[in-house]
Simulated scan of single mutants.
Amino acid sequence: MKYLLLLLLCYNGFSGTYAQHDTTRFHVIAFYTAREDAAHISFVHESNKWFAAQAAAHHFSYDATNDWNKLNTDTLSHYQVVIFLDSRPDSLPQRLAFQHYMENGGAWMGFHFAAFALTPSAFPQNWNWYHQQFLGAGSYDGNTWRPVSAVLRTEHRQHPVVKTLPDTFVSAPNEWYKWTNDLRKNPDIIILVSIDPSSFPLGTGPKPHEIWHNGYYPVAWTNKKYRMVYINMGHNDMDYEHHTNATLSSTFASETQNRLIINSLLWLGRRK
């Protein structure tokens, strides 16, 4: 009886350890570059801290790397969600591994510059599957300046990502992008959040085209053919004028915007 009791205690101890590890619901890996643009570097640094805290609160694991060579089939097989924080892969093997991952049930979340493409530039539109089919946005077609908050409108209210969000909410400061493709005309795209007209004029300039006075601008969407969410936020306001590069705003300063981000990640991680 004594030995039986000891065996039961040992078994229960191992069961408890297993149950504790089993609370990890899914695994996330974030890729970033964090070079050159101080605003994107600032966003990457605060993102890694924020997502690590969210991982502890919501029971997922979070790894982050600036080694894009890890964007390969073997590494991706260990993760349920991939995040692009501030860029995209540029080598053909990395692109093919990511496309294979997404076409075989993988999930993705991208921020701001992860969707950027402009020809000619250091980030040309030379990946049609990603920019035209997967994201649907095409190429970059302009932005507001400087980074400011906007009133955002929740769309497609039945979608789990935005179901609990208010009809409108105020974002954190951001540099807002517009695109060459009209996402409303793409039957595969579900627009989740757009800029509300009450935001206009949006931006402060000094260049006139950097201030938007009208138009329709989606800032978060998903593609029905893939497990993905793109969110345009991810550019902090920086002190460029005095050459200090000090961070003047935080992408995670809006509680409702944070809920949009974590709702998206949990939906991607739990969705089968």
Rank of each mutant, 00 (worst) to 15 (best):
H213K: 13
N128L: 15
N126H: 15
T244M: 09
L9A: 09
S121G: 01
K49M: 05
W267S: 01
W129V: 11
G203K: 02
L118S: 11
D237P: 02
P197D: 05
T144W: 06
W68P: 10
G205S: 03
R25L: 12
G105L: 04
S250G: 07
D74R: 11
H58L: 06
P120T: 06
I231K: 11
E155K: 15
V219N: 03
P124H: 07
L6W: 12
Y18K: 15
L5P: 00
T251F: 05
D188Y: 08
Y130T: 05
T17N: 14
M1A: 15
Q158T: 09
T168H: 04
P160Q: 00
V148W: 07
G215I: 00
P120R: 01
P208L: 01
H235N: 13
W212R: 04
A97G: 03
A122N: 11
F60A: 01
L248C: 02
L7V: 12
H213Q: 09
E36D: 13
Y177F: 14
G110N: 07
D63M: 02
G16A: 15
L4K: 09
L9N: 03
H78I: 01
N174A: 10
N66S: 14
L6M: 12
D86K: 07
G203L: 00
D22W: 12
D90W: 11
N48Y: 04
L152Y: 08
N12L: 14
A38M: 10
N69K: 13
D37P: 05
Q94H: 02
L266D: 12
A56Y: 08
V170G: 09
A38R: 12
N214W: 10
S139G: 13
L7R: 06
K224F: 04
G203P: 05
K207E: 10
I191G: 02
S198D: 13
G136M: 12
Y18H: 14
S264E: 05
P166H: 02
C10Q: 12
H45P: 01
S47Y: 00
P187W: 00
V170H: 13
S149D: 12
G269E: 07
N126C: 08
Q20N: 15
H209R: 06
E103H: 04
A117G: 15
F26G: 05
R95G: 00
K185N: 13
L96N: 02
L260A: 07
F111Q: 04
V193I: 11
M233E: 09
N174Y: 07
W127G: 13
D196R: 01
A246W: 05
T164D: 11
E210V: 00
G105T: 01
H243Q: 06
I41H: 11
Y240E: 11
Q257Y: 10
I231Q: 08
K163T: 10
M102N: 03
N236K: 08
Y11C: 15
H242Y: 06
N174Q: 13
I41L: 12
A122P: 05
W145G: 03
P166V: 06
A97V: 02
K272T: 06
